[in-house]
């Protein structure tokens, strides 16, 4: 049985190897992504947009939390506010456990909780297809791509940040 620790170690190895390969690869032609599962569907996060991925051990809820906010977690001594990526995408969560937290590269004080991390992918940039922004939820999804016969949609972490800023900003000052 694969434990969280094994999974994390494998992910870290893949990350490290990807950095080692970076010099050889034509960096401009490919995109590095982390494949995740949300609400049973496949998604991917751009490696460049996330600082790190951590297993979630304990979440402390905050009073008056807006929809999607799970609480705060401790990541190596620093606090981060964690949001349920699935809820922000409009999924009516079916009790999926929040096992992983992806910290945003631009703001390590914010993380997205995800149910399952599938692995690391490198895809040709040309294979990413833009998704038309039709509604509020789709603004969080910029592109889609196919990899080994599976379709993944790319989560726009910056758009998640903006959505969270709107959520917490809308509640006004203390």
């Amino acid at each position: 049985m694969t434990t969280d620790g094994d999974r994390l170690a494998a992910l870290r190895r893949e990350f490290d190897e990807s950095f080692a390969r970076a010099a050889a690869a034509a960096a401009g032609d490919s995109e590095r992504l982390v494949a995740v599962r949300l609400g049973g569907d496949r998604f991917a996060l751009r490696v460049a947009e996330i600082a790190s991925v951590h297993p979630i051990t304990a979440i402390t809820r905050l009073p008056g939390a807006p929809r999607g906010q799970l609480g705060i977690v401790n990541v190596r001594g620093q606090l981060a506010a964690v949001y349920d990526a699935a809820t922000l995408l409009g999924y009516t969560s079916a009790g999926e456990p929040h096992r992983w937290c992806a910290l945003c590269a631009e703001d390590r004080g914010m993380g997205l909780a995800i149910g399952a991390v599938e692995g690391y992918l490198r895809v040709e940039r040309a294979s990413l297809r833009a998704i038309a922004a039709e509604d509020e939820t789709n603004r969080l999804l910029t592109h889609a791509f196919e990899h080994e016969g599976r379709v993944y949609r790319v989560l726009d972490v910056s758009a998640f940040r903006a959505a969270v800023a709107e959520l917490v900003g809308a509640r006004g000052p203390r």
Binding site: L62, P63, G64, A65, P66, Q69, I72, L79, A80, A81, Y83, D107, G109, M110, R161, V164, A165, L167, V168, G169, R171, G172, P173, R174
Partner: peptide
């Protein structure tokens, strides 16, 4: 420790 900005300003914390 101050709460991260992304946590918003929860009341009474």
């Amino acid at each position: 420790r101050a709460l991260p900005a992304a946590a918003g300003r929860p009341p009474f914390v």
